[in-house]
């Protein structure tokens, strides 16, 4: 089971990144849940979602201690840093986030996702992150992530190739970083 909290400004693709993970897990025949924050905080403020996938049925769709925190802006890091389980992972969009992670008991990756995405698809920062996650998770297969992209962009087939490219680029980036 993996529990992921994703948080950032509206418009950064935070909620849709969560959906991509859930779709990938579903296509891989896993159980999954996607729970967004909703209401006025959606309008311009920080939005977040809780995503879980698991071989077992998912009990609580809420997450108190995520395995992964994806922080796309500073307020998100401030809000959720302490909640990450010891030994968990924090991924930061370093194009936006300027504060440092204080926790010493977690793995931190600072990734300039927007910069990486820029030359392929300026809106593809979240898909870059999806590629990175595939590599870090290790148990979600790329073919299902591609299926998820194809499904979500069913009505915009033109953008499918550039998003798949983002996915692969993200994966490649983290592979190199880990070396």
């Amino acid at each position: 089971m993996k529990k992921i909290t994703i948080s950032g400004f509206g418009g950064q693709g935070v909620l849709s990144l969560g959906k991509f993970i859930s779709y990938s897990a579903m296509f891989q025949n896993l159980n999954t849940s996607w729970l967004p924050s909703y209401g006025p905080e959606m309008r311009g403020g920080t939005s977040n979602c809780s995503v879980i996938y698991s071989e077992e049925p998912i009990a609580a769709p809420v997450i108190d201690h995520p395995d992964y925190l994806l922080a796309f802006n500073d307020p998100s890091l401030a809000k959720f840093e302490d909640s990450v389980r010891p030994g968990g992972t924090i991924l930061i969009n370093s194009d936006i986030v300027t504060t440092d992670v204080k926790r010493k008991d977690v793995t931190v990756y600072k990734i300039p996702v927007d910069t990486i995405a820029q030359e392929i698809n300026p809106k593809g920062g979240n898909i870059i992150m999806l590629g990175i996650l595939l590599e870090l998770f290790g148990d979600l297969k790329e073919e299902f992530a591609i299926q998820a992209i194809e499904h979500v962009f069913e009505n915009k087939p033109k953008v499918i190739p550039i998003n798949i490219e983002c996915l692969k680029k993200g994966r490649e980036y983290i592979k190199n970083l880990k070396k």
Partner: peptide
């Protein structure tokens, strides 16, 4: 509740 209405599951 709002949670069940807003969340996604297969």
């Amino acid at each position: 509740d709002g949670m069940l209405g807003q969340m996604m599951e297969p």
